[in-house]
Design a protein around this nucleic acid. Structure first.
Length: 379
RNA sequence: UGGGGUAUAGCCAAGCGGUAAGGCAUCAGACUUUGACUCUGAUAUGCGGUGGUUCGAAUCCACCUACCCCAG
């Protein structure tokens, strides 16, 4: 009997080709369009370019999903998780911002919505498994599911799956695990799919591309304050809200040339939420951007091979960041230290994803950073 | 109202008689399922103002204006 699969169909080209592959491989495929964001209900007004159009972007994506499903000859369901997304993903996103950290909502959208509620929904309808158009790979070893980077290392999206459990992974399929993005486009063109040339979506998933600052202003009112250069401790500019900036950023601060200083750009190295101060440092000759250790919590290990002692692996501190060698030192079931040599601009709130070769072994949320002497960095 | 100095794009800043470097910022693209980073491109018919010298002036001269420093 054919395995019944519920595929998340977004209206983009990736999940479309995922559906094509599943069907070709002999699965009994049903598509499902998920809707997790409602601009009106969620008070997403300011800077929202889609409100003035006759249809909001989520509805346009649904139209594309419908067309795609028809073109592939697959049935399409539609399911809202708007309330769940707000409660379990978005409120955490806002709370993280309020701490001055930089959250990564898509990671938790995967953990709670796509591989959580969506799977429960599929199960309730009698499906055996779910499938997604992520560029990631699942390999079952010793009877358990392990997560690997996709064959297309340029598109690899395993980073966004770092917080899912082995159990969640074990009932998910990734049909795009061994294909490159250019090949996906080519196949879509060959099939004459209407989304074959649709531009890749970027931006927070379900919220979409737009001016991020004005989006945030809907939920985090602007609160102007000072920008302080850590090298001199002097105020060099004004900011219009400390929460809108992220560590490692250098644009959008309006810091021009300063008399008597070099011409190197300034970067955000930290912030003080209570004092509403944004700390910056000039690129050259500053040690403020470095850390040598960080504390991660929400620790998640994917598999039953959790190491008992210090463990060498690589870490991505940001999506599309480089894999950097680190030593993992577990502190509790939920937290760990990562120790390394002088990495710059590590933003608290981001996900640290641990890799052993191409296998994503675990992840955690960056909670604190420490200097060379393992003293906590106060900003 | 004595002496000295400086005025070049939003900000730093080169230029020293031959037709406005560069950086930062900003904007636009590219890249990107986070905000970023990165990459590419754009940005002074104009050099505080008015005259003058010269074939030719941001560059030399005169005066004016603004700011800075030192004296009083």
């Amino acid at each position: 009997m054919k395995q019944k699969v519920l595929l998340g169909l977004s209206g983009g080209v990736d999940s479309a080709i995922a559906g094509y592959f599943l069907k070709k491989q002999g699965y009994d495929v049903t598509c499902c369009f998920m809707r997790n964001w409602d601009s009106i209900a969620n008070n997403d007004i300011k800077g929202n370019p889609t409100l003035t159009g006759s249809k909001c972007s989520q509805e346009l994506d649904y139209d594309d999903a419908k067309k795609t499903a028809d073109e592939l000859g697959l049935p399409l369901l539609r399911k809202d998780f708007i309330e769940e997304y707000w409660k379990e993903v978005f409120s955490m996103f806002i709370d993280t911002y309020k701490k001055g950290y930089t959250p990564d909502p898509d990671v938790f959208c995967n953990k709670y919505i796509k591989f959580g509620h969506f799977y429960d929904y599929a199960k309730s309808l009698g499906f055996d498994t779910i499938a997604m158009g992520h560029y990631a790979k699942r390999i079952d070893e010793n009877g358990e599911a392990h997560l690997y980077k996709a064959f297309d290392l340029n598109k690899d999206q395993s980073y966004f799956l770092g917080q899912i459990s082995e159990e969640q992974l074990s009932h998910a399929l990734f049909p795009l695990s061994d294909i490159t993005k250019p090949e996906v486009r080519k196949i879509a063109s060959g099939l004459n799919l209407s989304v074959a040339k649709k531009k890749d979506s970027t931006g927070v998933c379900f919220i979409g591309e737009r001016n991020f600052k004005s989006f945030l202003e809907n939920y985090l009112p602007s609160k102007p304050g000072q920008i302080v250069d850590l090298a001199t401790n002097k105020v060099i500019e004004q900011h219009d809200g400390i929460l809108y900036y992220t560590v490692g950023q250098h644009k959008g601060m309006n810091i021009g040339g300063i008399k008597g200083r070099s011409c190197a750009p300034f970067f955000v190295v930290g912030k003080n939420v209570e004092k509403n101060i944004l700390y910056v440092a000039q690129e050259e000759n500053n040690s403020f951007r470095f850390s040598s250790r960080c504390l991660i919590d929400h620790f998640n290990w994917i598999g039953n091979d959790l190491p008992s002692s210090d463990y060498q692996c690589n870490c991505k501190f940001r999506y599309r960041g480089k894999d950097m060698p680190v030593i993992l030192h577990l502190m509790s079931k939920d937290s760990a230290y990562l120790t390394y040599q002088d990495y710059s601009y590590i933003a608290k709130g981001q996900i640290a994803c641990l890799y052993q070769g191409n296998r994503l072994v675990g992840s955690g949320i960056i909670e604190e950073t420490y200097d060379r002497n393992y003293q906590k960095i106060p900003y």
